[in-house]
């Protein structure tokens, strides 16, 4: 889970989940607490989906 996808691709990550921003990949300080947690949950669920999925090559989810 990383914000700068081209770096994840360059260094060879296989399952890549784009995130929000470098200082807060899994959060967004402009949202309220509930909204921010919902956003984080969505991203983590996406990561779980990626872990569940078979991939043959580097994949951005």
């Amino acid at each position: 889970m990383a914000s700068i996808v081209p770096i994840s691709q360059s260094v060879g990550a296989n399952r890549i989940i784009p995130t929000v921003a470098i200082p807060h990949p899994l959060g967004n300080p402009t949202l309220d607490e509930k909204g921010e947690k919902a956003l984080r949950r969505k991203l983590v669920e996406k990561a779980l989906d990626a872990l569940h999925t078979d991939v043959k090559e580097q994949t951005v989810f």
Partner: peptide, 8 residues
């Protein structure tokens, strides 16, 4: 948690 999502 914004970096390490333990809560979720």
């Amino acid at each position: 948690d914004r970096v390490l999502p333990v809560d979720v």
